[in-house]
Design a protein around this nucleic acid. Structure first.
Lengths: 248, 248
DNA sequence: TATAGTTATGGTATAAACAACTAAAAAGTC
DNA sequence: GACTTTTTAGTTGTTTATACCATAACTATA
């Protein structure tokens, strides 16, 4: 790192050429299948070069007059029909040589990717098959080699997911509108593994925090005692903003 | 937000024009004057249009063959001589109309800023006055209106600083090599305010975590009992990676 | 119908941790 | 020597996390 410091600056009379960029937006879109307890990532098949025939994160190039966030929403809406989603910026990948379309000799174009992180409800999300290129949910552990540096972007996204799950109420952007405490616990186990409190203590903590609203209704699916159905109360969450919901 | 979803996609035979970007890198560089207990931000005076005569965050446009991180290091090295620093990517600002050089009619160029967050040691950092444009440390509360959307970027940077101070050992990138527990506590007070544990409990917690190495030496500055001088032990910090150092 | 299996729920006891507070030690100052 | 300043080292009460257990409410099966 220190080698990068104290470089002699270029002569002011010979201006160095600036890079010209196309800016892309790539989305890490997570969902959780609460039936099968699987963490899923949305990938699309690339029909054209470069990386034709490779799976990739759904992305697009930013158009004239379009903001980064708008571009992220646009590419998502082209792939899934959803009523509600969570979306935030993730990280920007902009090194040279990350896209083969960049000519290493001519330096004519650079491709930069502003990645975004999104969550959708699995039951609610309807994939849009346009007939041309494929689209699929992949369990995170089974994601193949992706185009470009998209595996690296995915790693960033997964880290963000785990971190946010600790403090933010993003679980309720993935779960159905009403859910049981067992559903909520299973979601945390699916994403984080078993490295935190057991079900009993998890229950006690979440209920004590006070932002889970009992709907009065009960489930009756299969064996076992029926579970109470809860709803997330965003207003009641405010005071819990900085308190962890689980301890990893 | 829902209005942004489900837009009809453009006709495939009439391709929409993509935006052409110049990519800039702007640095939020913080330091702390431990003598006067002030949180400082580095700003530079813009000599040329746009925003000539305004203070701004030190930035530059990315050159051909240069990575984003390299560009961030370059602009920092042009402004300060330091031996050690902390630097990470902050956020990417890329909406249209954030730079007056963008023509609203012709859509010829868009300017995007990949902001970075940096920390340097105040005593160690020597500002480089190039005679042309000004450069100065500003106390955070007294930062004037900056060029472009740089005040917004600064807000992002300050939030990142406060968040990182809670879990990461970035305090030791700002403090001198050896320091007293009083210095460390004052740094936290300077940045976070007084909303956390008192000095006595702060001491007990930090010492118990076990990554502060007693140098055996003592200070003898002014009145009061001499304080032990400590050094940060990065290896011993590893197990504390996920434990908070203060409770805000 | 009795019994076992399954899941949800509501606890208790113990150890750890946080918060507030007190007191002594080691220097300088008057 | 008395007083001030700052560091250091506690104590105590309360909260909190963790591990573990007991029971309730339902289903499936013998």
């Amino acid at each position: 790192m220190s080698a990068k410091l104290h470089r002699t600056s270029d002569h002011p009379l010979s201006p160095v050429p600036l890079a010209d960029f196309k800016v892309g937006v790539d989305n890490v879109i997570f969902s959780v299948d609460t039936q099968q307890n699987r963490l899923l990532v949305l990938v699309v098949m690339r029909p054209d070069a470069p990386f034709a025939g490779y799976w990739s994160l759904p992305g697009t190039l930013v158009r004239q007059g379009e903001s980064l966030e708008d571009a992220a929403y646009r590419v998502l809406a082209e792939k899934i029909r959803v009523n509600t989603l969570y979306l935030e910026q993730l990280y920007t990948f902009g090194g040279p040589d990350r896209d083969p379309r960049e000519s290493p000799v001519a330096f004519d174009v650079r491709y930069l990717s502003v990645s975004h992180f999104a969550l959708v409800r699995f039951e609610d999300a309807e994939l849009i098959a346009d007939g041309v290129s494929g689209i699929a949910w992949y369990p995170l552990a089974q994601v193949p080699q992706l185009a470009f540096d998209h595996n690296e972007i995915l790693t960033y996204g997964y880290r963000r997911l785990r971190n946010k799950l600790e403090y933010s109420p993003i679980a309720f952007d993935v779960l159905p509108e009403v859910f049981t405490l067992g559903d909520l616990y299973q979601l945390y186990v699916t994403v984080l593994g078993e490295g935190f409190s057991d079900y009993s203590n998890f229950r006690a903590r979440l209920l004590k925090l006070g932002f889970l609203q009992d709907t009065g209704q009960k489930t009756s699916r299969g064996a076992g005692r029926p579970a109470s159905l809860y709803r997330f109360d965003a207003a009641a969450f405010e005071p819990c903003k900085d308190k962890p919901m689980v301890f990893i």
